[in-house]
Design a binder for these strands. Sequence first.
DNA 1: CTTTGTGCAAATTCTTTGCACCAAA
DNA 2: TTTGGTGCAAAGAATTTGCACAAAG
Lengths: 138, 138
Amino acid sequence: MNSYIQTHQFLIQKNIKPSVQRTAVMEFLLNNRIHATVDEIYVALSPDMPTLSKTTVYNTLDLLVKKGAVQMLSIDEKNARYDADTSNHGHFFCQSCGKVSDIFNLNPALFEIPYHPNFKIKTVEISYTGICKECKEN
Amino acid sequence: MNSYIQTHQFLIQKNIKPSVQRTAVMEFLLNNRIHATVDEIYVALSPDMPTLSKTTVYNTLDLLVKKGAVQMLSIDEKNARYDADTSNHGHFFCQSCGKVSDIFNLNPALFEIPYHPNFKIKTVEISYTGICKECKEN
DNA sequence: CTTTGTGCAAATTCTTTGCACCAAA
DNA sequence: TTTGGTGCAAAGAATTTGCACAAAG
């Protein structure tokens, strides 16, 4: 588990001015690897930060993405999702329940950035969709 | 270029009842490999089909995806995009201009469906983001 | 002071839903 | 005549914007 003070340090390393709100959002993402949506983050933090606004969550996440502290996933067309794990791994989206899961141990070659004369490629996203075990069984 | 009648045949092969609207949407996607959004399709077809509604475009695209005639891309968080090319290729999203481009000739291994005990994986999407040549130069 | 961050409310955009009408089998 | 398809208007949900106030340097 990452503490508030550890997260604070982490933001400074990433060149992000650590406000209370920013630290709380980042800490939540570090400690909850659930590919949270904006709303999930807002709902989770609200009880302890009653004045927190969703606008600030949006602003903060935009900043964290721009600074490379978190990764935005577009796998779920309905909501943007955010992942504090920026290492090479893929994601699975269950079409039935909508849950997003990590897929680790994929061939590292999948994450190599291909050369293309017309594009300066910065990020790679590997997304799988289908049905998860729980949904299959029901 | 695919004609109306060719597209009509194509839908029948795919087990889709070909209405005028469905054929028009499919024909547009076959002939315009621009990863069109719902709105782009609607705006393009409206002049020739004044009574066409966006609801029908949505319904049709859902059906085409379900029948495997087109692929939905989630690379662009803002809008769903649709691609009539269902062969193995990746996509590039320019963060600056928002255009989506094809990336062909990728290693076929990228599109192999990995085995995972908890997931019945059906589709793979390989997405790259960055800046395109045009945007870089400006 | 001056700049930057936060938060409320309103606006915008994309997508879905309910329902009536139309068309095809 | 029954089923499925279409289209309008309204509703819903996610995100963005404008602006005033607060906080930090």
